[in-house]
Design a protein around this nucleic acid. Structure first.
Lengths: 242, 242
DNA sequence: CGCTCCCTTGATCCGAGTCAACAATCGTGG
DNA sequence: CCACGATTGTTGACTCGGATCAAGGGAGCG
């Protein structure tokens, strides 16, 4: 993703808890989060919020935005963020000239979709404890892949309200479950740093299954057919594959 | 999608409630559902099932499967299905030679992702009544777009158990909610045919918001930037755009 | 120093789950 | 065409996980 960083013509600094993109906003410009966390979310008519996914350093806010004229959901920062701005022209040029990045981007789109599906499973069929355990495990893997976690420990800038709105729970209940996890010695969570003290127990508690985040672990076994066929998912045709 | 149909070298007929693709299966081959319904789902270790999405006539079972070596979830038929089989070579050739279909496919991928996000909102922040109302409305629009519904009426081959596993509810509760909707005169549901008798009330009940299924309604306002830039999402580079 | 979020805990309530029994429908083979 | 077993739908009684309401306590910050 460093090549993407190089592309950013300018960097915008956003305050904590501020709005990057609002539902209905035009989205020609590509935004790359360089530091900080953001989240996609929807506000329902009755004021309830559902967080759909998190955007962490290295992620694009609207990677396939090029085909959509308008945003379908909001993106807000959770922490102060540095956001790189990429013009559509630059972005498309990059796609054409750097097939490897193109493929990495497409790949990350697939991982994103897999995470959305897994979230659906979580919300549909797991209880509060499993949901929270699952989220903590998933974030560890993801942040690990981004180099933002060391030995089962990472910065977690979410409030308990954010966690509640991610997992379809209430603040109060999230708090109680986290308390239990603390007293069980599974996690330490203090001033927005999470440490998973007992990975095995936590994964067991959350029925966390590594298969679904395979794309994050590095030891994925995919991309055969397309590569065999010298096929590139994105580019214009100017790109020579492999 | 007719051009896709033409591509299918052979057609497989599957029984009702049979397995098309299993988690971990290799997925080089592309499967196009020509008639019948199928669903993506996951079975959890404790035996619970979560249905992730429905596959209806015209949909591909594994469109971006070309980049994944293995399936990450199962696909089962819900009704008897005729499934067209497309080899990866044929598929890629098509992508190169028919940029319009390519774009339509990419577009449908975006719509799919939007539906996944909307399902997350449903599961996270809507109650049982809203979930069911929402599902019925969403399916009407989707089937309408596929020409499979006429005046607020369509074939719904789901059992109440399927609906429960889609919406994170139990069979019993789904049944009670549907009963209520019937007695309120909102819907008629009998021998797998659903009629929405009172669209306005049902959408109000489900807080159903047309924005999120915009891609289905035909009057979408997207694809500007990419088209202006003569950019095609998929192809090899052999494709000349528009 | 005082506000404003955020976290924490208790008491109570309710939407949806569980358990159980039975009716209706469907499909299949005799 | 009917009989039988197997799904699917329906309803009631009861339970429970998580929501709601309410009240303090802490921590960051201007």
């Amino acid at each position: 993703m460093n090549a993407l960083t190089a592309l950013t013509s300018r960097v915008v600094v956003c305050n904590k808890r501020s709005n990057i993109l609002r539902e209905g906003d035009p989205c020609e410009t590509i935004y790359l989060v360089r530091t900080g966390w953001a989240c996609r979310h929807t506000i329902l008519p009755d004021g309830k919020r559902q967080i759909i996914s998190f955007v962490i350093p290295g992620d694009l806010c609207n990677d396939h935005g090029l085909l959509s004229k308008h945003m379908e959901h909001c993106i807000d920062t959770l922490t102060p963020c540095e956001i790189g701005v990429i013009s559509p022209h630059q972005f498309l040029d990059m796609l054409n000239q750097h097939p490897r990045i193109s493929r990495a981007l497409y790949w990350s789109g697939l991982v994103t979709e897999a995470m959305l599906r897994e979230r659906i499973v979580t919300l549909g069929r797991r209880n509060a404890t499993q949901r929270i355990a699952h989220l903590f495990c998933e974030l560890l893997l993801r942040l690990n892949a981004a180099g933002l976690a060391q030995n089962h420990r990472y910065e977690l800038p979410l409030t308990q309200g954010d966690i509640a709105d991610t997992l379809g729970l209430t603040i109060v209940h999230v708090n109680r479950v986290i308390q239990t996890m603390r007293t069980m010695g599974l996690i330490k969570l203090k001033s927005h740093v999470l440490e998973i003290s007992n990975w095995d127990s936590l994964t067991a508690l959350g029925k966390f299954d590594l298969r679904h985040v395979n794309g994050l672990t590095g030891n994925d076994d995919r991309t055969s057919t397309a590569q065999q066929l010298h096929w590139s998912p994105w580019p214009e045709g100017l790109a020579s594959v492999h």
